[in-house]
């Protein structure tokens, strides 16, 4: 695995597009929570108190930052699409196999990026939540609610896996980006809305929605009736199942088809 990671490092080390998108995505995590933190802490302080929620105080800050960061995940997904479809554009996916990688190793190489990018997003969010909790909060440090950051990490993992699957299926960068953005930003939300309206809470079990259900914004989450949703464990199970199925489909595609 060390050799695979080293090879992937050589591929991106001098790839400017990769670093630019990565830096933007990384900045977006603390930046995304900055404005809400300022508004809630300075302008809506009384309103937040009335609702019994101070979103940027411990322990709620973990959930708040996890929720806001989840909107930036698409950028990491785009990075994933670019990394994978580049291999098809340059036909280096074939060359890696010809030169002596097992097909499985090609999948491991791309799963390495799923792990690396998701851990980076997770750590940055954890750091952001911790910092904002001290700067904008008025309660002592607490790790209660830290589970929301774990949910966020799983949301990033699933999003990156979906980006990987779309990329190995459609192979072409432009098409894969359009499909990925279309699905994550609009299509699934529309399906969730339609399903929830027609058949009820089962609409919350679509892939990315399982993570969204686990990551409500603190104040809003309190307002949702428990009758409208399943227990968190159901969504968590669904989320883990989707990750496993998507990874299985990626292996199946790469191991069985012509490259």
């Amino acid at each position: 695995m060390k050799r695979i990671i080293y090879t992937e490092w050589l591929k991106v080390k001098n790839y400017r597009v990769f670093w630019v998108i990565l830096v933007i995505a990384a900045i977006m995590i603390p930046a995304g929570s900055y404005v809400p933190a300022e508004i809630y802490t300075r302008q809506l302080k009384d309103a937040a108190k009335m609702l019994g929620q101070a979103p940027f105080s411990f322990p709620v800050v973990w959930q708040t930052v996890a929720n806001i960061s989840s909107y930036v995940t698409t950028l990491f997904g785009l990075l994933m699409v670019i990394l994978v479809t580049n291999e098809y554009t340059f036909r280096t996916n074939r060359q890696n196999i010809i030169d002596g990688w097992d097909r499985k190793e090609f999948v491991y190489a791309k799963l390495f990026w799923v792990v690396a990018l998701s851990l980076m997003a997770f750590l940055l969010s954890a750091l952001t939540a911790c910092t904002y909790g001290f700067v904008y909060g008025d309660k002592p440090f607490s790790t209660e609610n830290f589970i929301y950051l774990i949910y966020y990490w799983l949301q990033v993992v699933l999003t990156l896996c979906i980006a990987l699957l779309l990329s190995v299926w459609v192979k072409r960068a432009g098409f894969a980006i359009v499909l990925f953005l279309g699905y994550t930003m609009m299509l699934e939300q529309t399906l969730v809305f339609m399903l929830k309206r027609s058949v009820g809470r089962i609409g919350g079990l679509l892939p990315l929605q399982t993570a969204d259900e686990l990551l409500p914004f603190p104040v809003v989450g309190k307002m949702i009736s428990s009758a409208d949703r399943y227990d968190d464990s159901i969504y968590l199970f669904g989320l883990l199942l989707y990750i496993a199925v998507v990874i299985y489909l990626v292996f199946r595609k790469i191991l069985r088809s012509d490259l």
Binding site: Y6, T7, L10, N14, Y15, F90, T92, Q95, N96, G100
Partner: peptide, 21 residues
Amino acid sequence: PNFYHYLSGYKNLRISAAVKQ
């Protein structure tokens, strides 16, 4: 020839060497 377009010839060969061990 299948190589990474944004890398130099030398850097591409480093990748080939890594894959070929």
